[in-house]
């Protein structure tokens, strides 16, 4: 394979992310990596469930006191939409339309930043209104670790997207960078799926029970 080979929409292969052996390896390896990440988050979820509402004294805020659905709803919408826009980007990657792919990736990043802003606001709010911190109780530790790990993944995913967008802005698509874009978008979907579980297990179940 000559990585710098120039393509046209006609010569661009069907599955550009897996057209080379390197791409195939990256694709499969990344799925395995996500398998490991799934177990990591499963462990954090299990810990959260075990330590939910476990506080040292009754004057600490519990899950039902803390969470407000409207904010979490907005966050969920932002992240779900960003997953959709990253799908659009991958659609254009497959069609060898670099400009549109970059555009949708930029939109994805903006939505992700919006999510991150909300999350930071949320944490600050819990701190000021409820004194609910990482160190205040086992519940606090478990809550901030689970949501914080997710937040850190969001930050990493955004940095990754931005690095790819900037790095490749001047040269367009080729079979060397197509797998990179594709794998980054897989990562982004994974982050989204984890959030769906956080939304359910932490926030919805926190409100009702």
């Amino acid at each position: 394979m000559n990585a710098d080979e120039k393509y046209t929409p006609q010569t661009w292969p069907e599955g550009p992310e897996r057209a080379t052996l390197e791409g195939k390896n990256k694709f499969l390896g990344f799925w395995f990596f996500l398998g490991g990440e799934t177990v990591l988050f499963a462990s954090l979820f299990a810990t959260y469930i075990a330590l939910k509402d476990k506080v040292p004294s009754p004057d600490h805020a519990l899950a039902k006191d803390l969470f407000e659905l409207p904010l979490v709803f907005v966050m969920t919408m932002l992240l779900l939409t960003s997953s959709l826009t990253s799908v659009y980007a991958m659609y254009h990657l497959k069609n060898y339309d670099f400009k549109k792919m970059q555009l949708w990736l930029v939109i994805t990043v903006l939505l992700g930043l919006g999510f991150l802003g909300c999350e930071i606001y949320e944490f600050v709010h819990y701190y000021h209104a409820f004194d609910h911190t990482f160190t205040s109780s086992a519940f606090g530790s478990a809550f901030y670790t689970l949501t914080g790990f997710h937040g850190a993944h969001v930050i990493f995913g955004l940095a990754w997207f931005i690095a790819l967008i900037v790095r490749n802005a001047g040269r367009g698509l080729n079979l060397y960078n197509a797998p990179k874009f594709y794998v980054a978008s897989l990562y982004w979907h994974f982050i989204d799926v984890v959030w769906v579980f956080i939304f359910t297990v932490v926030y919805l179940m926190g409100m009702v029970g």
Partner: peptide, 11 residues
């Protein structure tokens, strides 16, 4: 943090 600190609700 207090994951394993029983006094703060840990286990």
């Amino acid at each position: 943090a207090n994951f394993f600190n029983v006094a703060a609700g840990g286990n």
